[in-house]
Computed example of a mutant assay.
Amino acid sequence: MLAPGYYLVSYKASVLFQAASYMQITPSYNGTAHLDAGIYFATSTGGTSASGSAFIIIRAPAQTVFTLTYSGSSEARAGDINLTILRLNRPL
């Protein structure tokens, strides 16, 4: 849950696939999914890792829920995600 304000959000995700697949990480905030700020990575062989990272600045005019949603075309193994949220000293 984010209080009203501006935030710098950094996230990185990595997974290991046993078959050709893709992963997509989609951030949602202010009640909307933001595909433009997401991570997408496709693999063409099995036993391959997929990873990506993104940075966004969020303007939260009111209290808002921030989530990251994972989707993929096959089961992922050995996943890892790093998430950092910093509130910026900037007036709304």
Score class of each variant (00 low, 15 high):
1 M>T: 13
2 L>K: 03
4 P>K: 01
4 P>I: 01
5 G>W: 02
6 Y>I: 01
8 L>R: 12
9 V>A: 08
9 V>L: 06
10 S>M: 09
12 K>V: 09
13 A>T: 11
14 S>N: 11
15 V>Y: 08
17 F>V: 05
18 Q>G: 12
23 M>I: 14
25 I>D: 02
26 T>S: 05
27 P>I: 05
29 Y>H: 13
29 Y>D: 05
29 Y>A: 06
31 G>K: 01
32 T>P: 00
32 T>D: 10
32 T>W: 00
34 H>C: 04
38 G>K: 00
39 I>D: 07
39 I>L: 07
39 I>E: 04
40 Y>P: 02
40 Y>N: 09
42 A>Q: 15
42 A>K: 09
42 A>H: 04
43 T>K: 02
43 T>R: 01
44 S>W: 02
46 G>S: 00
46 G>F: 01
46 G>N: 01
47 G>M: 02
48 T>S: 15
49 S>H: 03
50 A>M: 06
53 S>N: 15
54 A>D: 11
55 F>G: 06
56 I>S: 14
56 I>P: 01
56 I>W: 04
56 I>F: 10
62 A>Y: 12
68 L>G: 06
68 L>K: 04
70 Y>V: 02
72 G>L: 07
72 G>A: 12
74 S>H: 06
74 S>E: 12
75 E>M: 08
76 A>D: 06
78 A>G: 13
79 G>R: 00
79 G>M: 06
83 L>C: 05
84 T>M: 10
85 I>E: 11
85 I>C: 07
87 R>V: 01
87 R>H: 04
88 L>S: 07
92 L>K: 02
